[in-house]
Amino acid sequence: MPLLLVLVFLNIAGFSLILPLLPFYGHAFGAGPFAIACLFAAYSLGNIAGEIFWGRRSDLTGRRPVLVLTTACAAVTYIAFAFSQNLETALVLRVVGGFFGGTLGVVQGVIADITPPRDRAKVMGFFGAAFNFGFAVGPAIGGLLASPEQGLAGFHLPIFAAAALAAGASLWAWQFLAETRQPGPARTPPRYGEAVSFVSTSPLLWRLLLISWCGIAIFASTEAIFGLWTERAFGWTTHEVGLTFLAVGGVGLLVQTLGIGPLVKRFGEAKVIVGGLILLCAAVGLQPVFHAPVATVCLMALMMAGHSLAFPNAGALISRNTPPERQGSVMGLSMASNASSRIIAPPLFGLVFGLSADAPFLLGAVIIVLVVPVALAVVKLTAPRPATA
């Protein structure tokens, strides 16, 4: 298991290393807020196709060759991205990169292959910690290595670093990762039509999917416009944005490893979801109120804390309240729904940013306020029913 967690760390560090660069990289092409937000959304578009394709491919050929191949191809894609000659090429390469990065389902398949059901929650916690550690380290490296004042050439070094991390992940998987599944029949593709029908008739499940969609949309959109907003508000560059992401990822790591377990044990998943949404709403809504760099970093960290509390618990409730024969289709629908929020929302928030720099934060806070009553209904739906005589 530690060998797999190293692979997760390397992969996520390479992916997240690019994030604080994208607003400034887009500027180098003369892109506006909408086009820059599309650079974020394009990766998720490729991710949807990748998760479906590589998950089934790993059933046919085994997990290890898929992880070796996809991380190696991701490294090549990063290098091509560094030498993009125009915004259109950069967008296409972000989609391709997302396709080769769509392997979290494969990693979760490895965990399912080697972990008894009773231990999976604990192991998924380790997986989340490795993910957040990579998300903390990657942006800091990217922000510190970039030199936006040099134009496109100033982004070559951090993007090459992302390629090196992806290549390192490929070599690590090839050298140290053992195969956990013998080649065999591919899993049946998720039947989204059946899943939609099932979820729409469940008062609990459709609310959980709505909460996840809205919350992840706000988080992804804030992430997309953050560099633009801080550049305008404080004159920040990739350095400051990267260090902020370091703080954000560190908070996510602490919440995942130390906070979420005791809170769920004390209050239950549904109430923790409500608390996470309240933190998320406060962090987003107060961002334009406190125009100070320290406050901005603290509020972004608070946003990650709320995100880390709310949405893993929403996923856990979805899984626990879905019968075994529908797990694949419903969880597939959940992943597709979450990915669609990361595709649709950032460009829309980019358009709103073009009208007013503070408006996306206020819009995000309003959306979360509207979602909180939905989460309170989830608390009622999951509350233990009194025993009848």
Rank of each mutant, 00 (worst) to 15 (best):
L21H: 01
T222L: 11
A167Q: 08
F155L: 12
S340E: 04
I141D: 00
I368W: 13
G32V: 02
G134Q: 13
P360W: 15
P293Y: 07
W213K: 09
P23E: 06
V199A: 01
P189F: 14
I260A: 02
L205P: 03
L91R: 12
F53M: 03
G215E: 11
T115K: 13
L10M: 08
S44M: 04
V199P: 01
S337E: 05
F99E: 11
M303P: 10
L93V: 06
A28F: 09
I278T: 07
G101L: 08
P20D: 02
V6M: 12
V352G: 03
F24M: 07
M1F: 12
G332E: 07
P117R: 13
V123E: 11
L10T: 10
I216V: 15
A112H: 14
V241H: 03
I367Y: 09
G276F: 10
G134H: 11
V378Q: 02
L45P: 00
G151M: 08
N313K: 12
L277M: 13
V106G: 00
W206V: 02
R326F: 03
P373A: 11
Q175W: 15
L177Q: 04
H156I: 10
S337R: 02
Q182K: 15
V95P: 04
Y192D: 04
L4R: 09
F245E: 00
P360N: 10
F311G: 02
F176G: 04
I216E: 04
L205M: 09
G242S: 00
Q327N: 05
L165C: 03
